[in-house]
Amino acid sequence: MVRVVVGIKWVPNTQAVRFDPKTGTLIREGVPSIVNPHDLDAVELALKLRDRYGGEVIAISMAPPSAIKGLEHVLGMGVDRAILISDRVFAGADTLATSYVLANAIRRLGSFDLIIFGQETIDSSTAHIPAQVASWLDLPYVYYVEDVEELGGGRAVVRRRLEDRIEWYEIELPAVIATAMHSQQPRPVRLSYKLRAKTERRVEVWDNKVLGLDERCVGLRGSPTVVTKVTWMPEVPRKRQVFRGDPREAVKWLIEKLREEGVLPY
């Protein structure tokens, strides 16, 4: 039997955010939110372990109430229990304050074997949360995990992939792991599960009345980092010379230009 906690984030679908070059603004209207795709690797790995050893998978997410949809999505994949951690005082949190809330919520869940996170999120891609949660809970942690090959007797063997090597670690449990990107093939949502999640209101909501955390440690107040301003990124000056017409002429033109630049290896 395993008990696995999996952390997910409800993120704007950054692929759908468009830039209007005429007005110089971001087009955010109608941009749907989704479960961070890299977190689905974590959900899949957690479900695989449960299918193999039996037990329970608990998904948690700190987000505004609209993220219930995201948790219903993973309930639809087969997660056993889902908890939304949501309170106005948690808003505006940086990664330290977010990990603090998540770590305290996980403490309330009692004993567990593994906490699994996705490698990073598509909206901010910091990859901080797994290590920060490990630090708050003083647990061992391994990043870039492709698979958990063995589990039992208070230990697990995990395989992780780096750029030039594959490593196998034996870790003491409980532990935190972050999955390698694209390492799993997340199973599809079963509509019957998702529907039941919705109709039975399966997503539990924990606010700060439940967690009872010091308001100086959460949300904007509990965040040591502060965003002071946001500006446009200056464009790199480029020559922007464009050739239209016959491909043969185009190639000649290009090679001439590249020779002038002195960037050809010949």
Binding site: P12, T228, K229, V230
Partner: peptide
């Protein structure tokens, strides 16, 4: 996340 912006953080 929008790579045309820069955030200044301290």
């Amino acid at each position: 996340f929008a790579a045309i912006l820069l955030a200044y953080i301290k």
